[in-house]
Amino acid sequence: MYTQALNAPQSDERHLEDADKSARFEARVANEQRIEPNDWMPAAYRKTLTRQISQHAHSEIVGMLPEGNWITRAPTLRRKAALLAKVQDECGHGLYLYAAAETLGSSREELVDQLLGGKAKYSSIFNYPTLTWADIGAIGWLVDGAAIMNQIPLCRCSYGPYARAMIRVCKEESFHQRQGYEIMVTLSRGTDEQKAMAQDALNRWWWPCLMMFGPPDQQSQHGNQSTRWKIKRFSNDELRQKFVDATVPQARYLGLTMPDPELRFNDATQHWDFGAIDWQEFADVLAGFGPCNRDRMAARRKAHDDGAWVREAAQAYADKERARRAADNAVAA
């Protein structure tokens, strides 16, 4: 059940790490059993998941902004309808994920406040601008492609509600990547100018996409514990390598050049070796100094504030109806 109401804190028991319960929990996770909202879980597991799932939700929501920028300027009705549907899906993903996070005991209002208050993070990738229409192609192909790499193993995450949300999300993501790649195919078969536009978008999005998988394994703060708890099934570097291996041939097909002079196929490992990632850039963007961090947060706050009257009106109407029904029942009784 996705029910937060069932999750009323059982006194302070939740924080007392009972060795017995803890051992049973670890055994269940080791046996590939799913942990469900009302099951006992270590406070650190709850905290880790709340952070991860809510950050994931925030990313889906903020992720609507860079693409939303192009809805009104899509080149054809077909592209416009597809982009609109994709952005709606991302909103849906955000909602599934907030619901999954809520089962751990935080309300959605709290989680949204953390985002708007600048306390919660979201994926660094959405702090880059969408300068041309080709960026919409590059985002679908690369950003959604990277997201799929990340999300497929999460379908087997030990926490039931998160795993179930991910199954739904993954089913929807494949259209996102395909529509993006289709845009790239069209542009790269187009005029010289269109091809240059596609190449420019690839140049700008490639490295930030590699950063989406998070810091290298030796520096990752959350890696080990999450792997032990079966929240994470592959390390950041493993997923990044899978993404590179899958994407390089797709870029070749487009006739585009990866912006990495060190990229070459390694016959010994059967993987593509790639150049060094600028981790300072990643740290800067996460710390709030990416090209669009301020814009993104300002847009989210404005949307939240502008929507306040709608939420208030809906609640006032619901309260009035409830009072009316109660009065009717009192008369009838």
Partner: peptide
């Protein structure tokens, strides 16, 4: 799954969309 809504009418509409 689940969702937030002020009343059942809005909940049904949101359920359809989500």
């Amino acid at each position: 799954g689940s969702l937030h809504a002020a009343d059942s009418t809005l909940a049904l509409q949101a359920a359809r969309d989500v």
